[in-house]
Amino acid sequence: MKIAIASGKGGTGKTFFSVNLAHSLDRELLLLDCDVEEPNVNLFLKGELVEQRDSTLLVPQVDLDLCDGCRVCADFCQFNAIAVIRGVPLIFEDLCHGCGGCTLFCPQKAMDDTPHKIGVISHYHKGKISLIEGRLDVGKALAVPVIRDVKGDKEVAKHPLVILDAPPGTSCPVVWSLSGCDLAILVTEGTPFGLHDLKLAVETVREVGIPFGVVVNRDGLGDERVVTYCQEENIPVVGKIPNDREIATLYAQGKIVVDELPHYRALFTQIWENIASLAKGGRYERVQ
């Protein structure tokens, strides 16, 4: 089973929830850190680095001996990643999406796909938890190819339980993170920003078409409108985590809350049961 932890708004507690859920389960599992712009899971897991490789995008390289400056590549590129100046194609690697069109359509076969590093994929391990982290290089624009590399890692298929920490927002990086997952948990908070962005996240998950539930974090902060909204939309609330300054303090220091405060371990165990039952299509089945 592959579960994505997402939210529209940033800072609602996706990573907090993913990491503490993983620690509360006491079983073999794989965490995927798909928030590749700002990956934080290993700040908490503190796992040992097992393996590391570059995340690359295939961008074209021009053989100037073969190129006749015909501009087919530049005319074809939808992303303005190629400009032909005085008969010589210039490649803007940071604009390239790696579609391969220019290489494919070059009449002189003067272009070749070359791996261009945009990030790093790292494997960590601690106890029963494995982690694959994607990390976009600072200054690189495209998060999606790094997310694809994390999700496409050969380790992923070997794990019966995968918990994926998604990036914030509602656009392409989130969609790529959610797609192919069995279930999404949207972490939100009872503030107007939390509610507004939850609605956007709900639209996005519905677009992707996977079942989902909501976790209300910092419960008690703000007002009841988030819960009312979930009731009206028939969205299962699988858990509520209280607004507790002790959690904030432990989290700030990179500590695992379920290890430090046992009563939260019980809460996460309960939330996990709700998630498992939602996944089985039990009483938490989403009503269309």
Binding site: E38, N40, V138, G139, A252, G254
Partner: peptide
């Protein structure tokens, strides 16, 4: 930013971007 390991980690990355 906020005073947490995550806040600090992410601050460092976005600072480097701004420095570029």
């Amino acid at each position: 930013t906020e005073p947490s390991l995550s806040g600090l980690h992410d601050l460092e990355r976005v600072s480097r971007l701004a420095a570029n």
